[in-house]
């Protein structure tokens, strides 16, 4: 057991993956000597050399596209995109090439590559540096999208993503990078594409992922003080979605609130809500509610607390659900 932050969990996970498999190569802007803006790759270039931890020019399309070629030749590249908003120049390569190469090649070509993206707001960094763009990629067949919410998952999920033979977009909750937790490096990890019930309850189900898991756990704690018993599910995988865990929970509680930082408009919550009303219609005691960002550009840094879902907004939704 060791105590580590989410950032360190990913760093340690990358290190283990690189030690286990010489085909694992990291690429990105300032990830080597500097160790990345968030220091997630700190020390790895020093230990693995400049060929395994490659500092690249500022060229997101070029980097992701280069990773495609590396994967075609047997490597397992891990690309770091410095900030969520910087993924857009590479969007074309991800949706037009990465997602479709396997189908185009009759399954002969696989692209075992990971694209790491620090995601979300809460660090006072305004637009281009605070975006939650996971739904764009979850919408594209051929890609897998996961998001860790704690150090233990960070440590294991990055290793599992690297071992996956499909391209994985790996979202990291940047404002939680420094949250610490105990990690058991000898335990058997949970499956990568499965949701996790991280707090059991009976009155309502909160579904979240990434940075909002902590918010939901805090909300459940506060609600417990008022005698409300909330279940909290960490989705972990956004594509594929593990609907079985969610449906089982909703069949038990009859109520659900989906929470994410991204705009609720056509966000992951819309898909989860649609699936739940189809699968659990006769179990629902209230409409499925969503708490999320607004359909607006990311706000000024001093106003982001108004924009991001917080404890109060989650609890307000829970109250509305329970009062229905």
């Amino acid at each position: 057991m060791s105590t580590m932050t989410i950032a360190k969990g990913i760093n340690n996970g990358l290190r283990v993956a690189m030690e286990k498999d010489s085909r694992v190569v990291l690429m990105g802007e300032d990830i080597g000597k500097l160790g990345g803006v968030f220091r997630v790759t700190d020390g790895l270039q020093k230990d693995f050399g400049e060929d395994r931890v490659i500092d690249t020019p500022l060229a997101e399309a070029g980097i992701v596209g280069t990773a495609i070629g590396m994967a075609l030749r047997g490597y397992r590249p891990v690309v770091e995109i410095q900030f969520d908003g910087f993924i857009y120049p590479a969007f074309d390569h991800i949706v037009s090439q990465v997602a479709k190469m396997r189908a185009r090649s009759l399954g002969k070509v696989k692209l075992p590559m990971v694209i790491r993206i620090p995601v979300g707001g809460g660090i006072g960094a305004v637009e281009h540096h605070s975006e939650s763009n996971e739904a764009y990629f979850a919408h594209t067949a051929g890609l897998k999208v996961v998001c860790c919410s704690n150090a233990e998952d960070a440590y294991w999920m990055i290793q599992q993503a690297i071992e996956t033979d499909d391209p994985v977009l790996f979202y990291e909750p940047k404002r939680r990078y420094w949250d610490k937790a105990e990690v058991d490096e000898t335990a058997a990890p949970r499956e990568l594409f499965k949701a996790q019930v991280c707090r059991e309850g009976t009155d309502a189900t909160l579904v979240a992922y990434g940075p909002m898991v902590k918010t939901c756990l805090q909300a459940a704690e506060a609600a417990a003080g008022e005698g409300k018993n909330l279940e909290v599910i960490d989705l972990r995988s956004l594509s594929p979605l593990d609907m079985d865990v969610i449906a089982a929970s909703v069949e038990k509680t009859g109520r659900m609130v989906v929470v994410h930082e991204a705009s609720t408009f056509l966000g992951l919550g819309a898909e989860v809500a649609a699936e739940v009303q189809q699968r659990c219609f006769y179990h629902l005691e209230a409409p499925v509610l969503r708490v999320g960002g607004y359909n607006l550009p990311y706000p000024p840094s001093k106003l982001e607390e108004e924009f991001l879902p917080d404890l109060d907004r989650v609890l307000d939704a829970v109250d509305r659900s329970l009062a229905y």
Partner: peptide
């Protein structure tokens, strides 16, 4: 183009 660069890098 970028995938060509990647294959050549490999």
């Amino acid at each position: 183009m970028p995938p060509s660069v990647g294959m050549a890098l490999a």
